Simulated assay, not measured.
Amino acid sequence: MGRWEPNARERLAEAALGLYGERGYEQTTVAEIAKRAGLTERTFFRHYADKREVLFAGSRDLQELFVRAVADAPENAAPIDALALGLHAVCAVFADRRPFARARHAVITANAELRERELIKLASLSAALADTLRLRGVAEPAASLAAEAGVSVFKVGFERWIAAAEDRDLAQLVREALTELRAVAAGS
């Protein structure tokens, strides 16, 4: 093998998801992932800290994108409107990733350790959004409530988006979930 492996990160992620789906997360080794990707274990560890990180590698970037979009919202935007801008930015990342998202979700829901990691990731996202809203001048508990609501809207839209029979795009489903949240909050 040469020193430079084109698309190594993507090849490793694809190989890992395939093996996790076939054999289960616990039964899959890093050596098997690397072999299926046509790479070495050393290359795997250049891209991922461990086999779990294949599933969570983009979490930090996604959180930064969401937070930045909320922070950059117009100064006079209501908290929920600032979060809507963040949601819109995040949805764009998933545009062509539905098969990956479905496979990833199936692996995570089948494993208690991975479900816990996913919950920690979402809690971290909510905390970062609440911090951002507080920096925008939103008082407590409104900042925390709005941040939790924004994460919930994303979760509801995402879970609908990865459903087997769903063909609408994530942005549409998130907008619908946000509209429902607004209706619930308004008492309609």
Rank of each mutant, 00 (worst) to 15 (best):
I33T: 04
A31K: 09
E22F: 01
A110L: 09
R104K: 11
H105V: 11
R168G: 02
A143L: 07
A31V: 08
A163E: 14
A34I: 03
D50I: 10
A89K: 02
Q63E: 14
F56C: 07
L119S: 12
A8L: 07
D61C: 07
G2H: 09
L119R: 15
A69E: 04
A185L: 14
K35R: 15
L12W: 01
R182C: 01
V54D: 00
R134V: 05
R136H: 05
A82F: 09
C91K: 05
H105E: 12
A149M: 09
E75W: 13
F45M: 06
L129Q: 00
G38L: 03
G187Q: 03
N111Q: 10
D61A: 15
E140A: 10
G24W: 09
F66H: 02
A57D: 08
D131I: 01
L173N: 01
V93A: 12
R36S: 05
V174C: 01
T179E: 13
A112I: 11
P74A: 14
V174D: 02
R182P: 00
L178N: 04
R60F: 08
D72S: 12
E64Q: 13
S144F: 03
A89P: 05
V67R: 06
L129M: 03
F100N: 05
Q63V: 14
S144Q: 11
T40D: 07
A101W: 05
V138A: 03
L65K: 08
L55C: 06
L83D: 00
D61R: 14
G21D: 05
E22I: 04
A34C: 06
A103K: 08
V153H: 02
E176A: 11
E5L: 13
A101M: 13
F44V: 04
F158I: 02
E166A: 02
T179K: 12
E159M: 13
L87M: 10
E140D: 13
N7D: 15
Y48H: 07
E148G: 07
K35H: 10
A164K: 11
G187I: 02
V107F: 04
H88T: 15
W161N: 01
R11E: 04
V156W: 08
I33C: 02
Q172K: 14
I120W: 06
L133V: 06
P79C: 07
R36L: 09
T179P: 00
V184H: 08
V54K: 00
E14P: 00
T43K: 10
D81Q: 11
D81L: 11
G187S: 03
L135G: 14
A8T: 06
L85D: 12
F154W: 12
A123D: 15
A13H: 01
R134G: 07
I108Y: 01
Y20N: 04
R3K: 10
A15S: 07
I120Q: 13
I162N: 00
G187V: 02
E116D: 13
Q63L: 14
I33R: 00
E166C: 07
T109S: 10
N76R: 15
F66S: 03
P6E: 10
A101K: 06
R136T: 08
A147N: 02
A49C: 07
L39C: 05
D50V: 10
V67S: 04
E26T: 09
